[in-house]
Design a protein around this nucleic acid. Structure first.
Lengths: 147, 147
DNA sequence: CGTGAAATCCATGGCCG
DNA sequence: CGGCCATGGATTTCACG
C-alpha cells in the first residue's frame, strides 16, 4: 500500500507538516523534486487528505472534554444529527451501530456550559455523558505498515 | 483569548497548514514578517501544538472503525491501559468518568482483525464495541471565538 | 522515476514609522 | 507592533539518465 519512501515521508510529516521540502528530502534520502512529486501523488491518491494545525483546546479556554453517547427519540434522528452538526462545541461525532446512535466529543469551558449544551438535546434524545479525565492516546494515525 | 488576526490565521491554517507565509499574509491582510511573528507567538503560547498531515485510513486499507468502551476487571487497570497504548490500531483513547473507564477508537481492516484485537483484551476487561457507520463530524477544532 | 542545475519565488532579519 | 527591503534559502522547472 505504501513503499518505504512514502512511509518515511508520512512519518516525518505527521510530526511536522510544515517542514521544508529540502529538509524532508534530506530525512528520506532523496532530492527535493522527487519528494515533492511523491507528496503530490499521495495527495492525488487521497492518502493525504490535507495538512492541518493542532490546536490545544485548553489554551483556548476549553478546560473540559466530554464523550457523549446520544440516542435520539423516535422520529428525532435527523433533527438530532443536524443539532449536533450545528453545535460547534462538538469536535467529533460518529454514527455507530447499537443502541447509542451517535458518539460525540464535546469541548466546553465549564460544567455550566456542558449542562447548557446538553439541555438543547435533552428533549430530543437520551444521552450518557462521560467526562474526560485523561487522554492516554490523544490522536494517532493508523499503522502505516500493515499489521 | 484570540484577536481577530490570530483567529483568521488559525482558520486558514486549519484548512491548509502548508500554505506559504506570503499567501497566509495576503489572506489576513498583513505582511509576511508580521504573520510569521504571530505564528511564532501562537506556537510559543502553545495554542498551536504542531502541524500535521491528515491521513485517510481507508486509503491505507483500514475499512472499519470502531468505538470501544472498555472496563478493566479489578486489578487490571494499568495492564489494560498499557495494552491499549501498545496496540497501534487504537487511534484515540480517553480515560473517562463512569463505569466505562476508557473509550477508544480502533482502526481495522476487517471484522476478523477487529475480533483479533478485542480478543487480546477480553480476559482483562469488559468491552462494548460499536462499529462506525458514518462520521457526521470527522474532526473539528473547538470554536476559536468564545461561545 | 529519479537527479542536478538554473530561474523564480519566498522567508527572515534589520531598520524605520 | 507592523511595514518595507535586501539577502540568503527554498521551490519549481526542465533536460537528461
Amino acid at each position: 500500500m505504501l513503499d518505504d519512501v512514502e512511509q518515511k515521508i508520512l512519518e516525518v510529516m505527521l510530526q511536522d507538516a510544515r517542514i521544508s521540502l529540502k529538509d524532508l528530502a534530506a530525512r528520506v534520502g532523496m532530492s527535493s523534486p522527487s519528494v515533492s512529486e511523491r507528496l503530490r501523488r499521495l495527495e492525488e491518491r487521497r492518502v493525504i487528505r490535507g495538512y492541518t494545525v493542532e490546536i490545544d483546546p485548553k489554551a483556548l479556554g476549553y478546560q473540559l472534554q466530554a464523550i457523549v453517547r446520544i440516542r435520539p427519540l423516535p422520529g428525532q434522528l435527523q433533527v438530532v444529527q443536524k443539532l449536533i452538526e450545528n453545535t460547534p462545541e462538538f469536535g467529533e461525532c460518529d454514527k455507530v451501530t447499537g443502541e447509542d446512535c451517535y458518539i460525540a466529543r464535546l469541548f466546553v469551558r465549564s460544567i455550566e456550559q456542558l449542562d447548557q449544551v446538553l439541555d438543547r438535546i435533552v428533549d430530543k434524545a437520551e444521552t450518557h455523558t462521560a467526562i474526560v479525565k485523561m487522554q492516554p492516546i490523544r490522536r494517532r494515525a493508523p499503522p502505516l505498515r500493515l499489521g
